[in-house]
């Protein structure tokens, strides 16, 4: 059985996870946070995102452990890089589940009902919409480079890609303008948003986690 959470709660949790990561008092709290996200993804039925995220995270921990065994410049550099990525892992982990279970329209309505101004909502949703397109564009450019026997280079891959993306972004905006995206009327959503018991439960749990880690996390328990 999978639970559908209100997109507003999901956005709230996303923010709270950032609070936890930012406060991040110790490793144990981070694990606690990852664990809770894992349970939440399982409840939402995102098994693929769940297993992929945990695998990547475990891989990072493994490499960090190995780096700890050897003490030199290279391993220090590698661990620093990995620590940077590990810090954003909880956010990425949950965001993957959020994207998989939330429709763009729902997200727009949720943000609007939270009175987020339109100048933020529209670019935010366009960005979300854009990732899969950018991926398609990028692989086409890589193909073209391979046909010419060219090696990957910033100048030759990223500039054509940016030009193309700018084009697509313009066409996309034109299309959404003709569908009334700029309308001053209050936007509605086909799927009505109601906060239900499970929404309150997960909301409270993650608020508690955020408060807990701001106060010092698991270490506090040991005085």
């Amino acid at each position: 059985m999978t639970l559908r959470f209100d997109p507003r709660v999901k956005l709230l949790i996303l923010v709270l996870i950032n609070v936890v990561v930012f406060a991040s008092p110790d490793m144990a709290t981070e694990w606690l946070c990852m664990g809770m996200i894992a349970v939440l993804l399982a409840l939402m039925g995102c098994w693929r995102q769940l297993s992929l995220g945990l695998l990547v995270y475990a891989g990072m921990m493994g490499v960090l452990y190995l780096c700890g065994l050897f003490d030199n410049f290279l391993t220090a550099f590698i661990s620093m890089t990995i620590v940077c990525f590990r810090k954003i892992m909880p956010t990425v982990f949950f965001a993957s589940g959020l994207l998989a279970t939330t429709k763009v329209g729902e997200l727009v309505s949720a943000m609007q009902s939270m009175r987020v101004p339109k100048v933020i909502v529209i670019p935010f949703t366009v960005t979300l919409r854009f990732f899969p397109t950018a991926r398609e564009e990028f692989s086409a450019i890589l193909d073209a480079a391979r046909l010419r026997g060219l090696r990957f280079s910033m100048e030759r891959t990223l500039i054509p890609m940016m030009l193309r993306c700018a084009n697509i972004a313009e066409e996309l905006s034109a299309a959404s303008v003709t569908r009334g995206i700029e309308s001053a009327k209050k936007r509605t959503s086909m799927r009505e948003l109601h906060l239900k018991a499970p929404d309150f439960c997960v909301g409270v749990v993650f608020v508690a986690l955020a408060v807990f880690s701001v106060m010092g996390g698991v270490l506090v328990l040991y005085g």
């Binding site: 429709k103 763009v104 329209g105 729902e106 727009v108 309505s109 949703t125 366009v126 919409r129 899969p132 996309l172 299309a175 959404s176 569908r179 009334g180 995206i181 309308s183 009327k185 936007r187 509605t188 959503s189 086909m190």
Partner: peptide, 15 residues
Amino acid sequence: FNLDTTGEVAFGCEN
């Protein structure tokens, strides 16, 4: 604008 078809059909009405 949407990633799913139903959302896309509803999109204009929602706006």
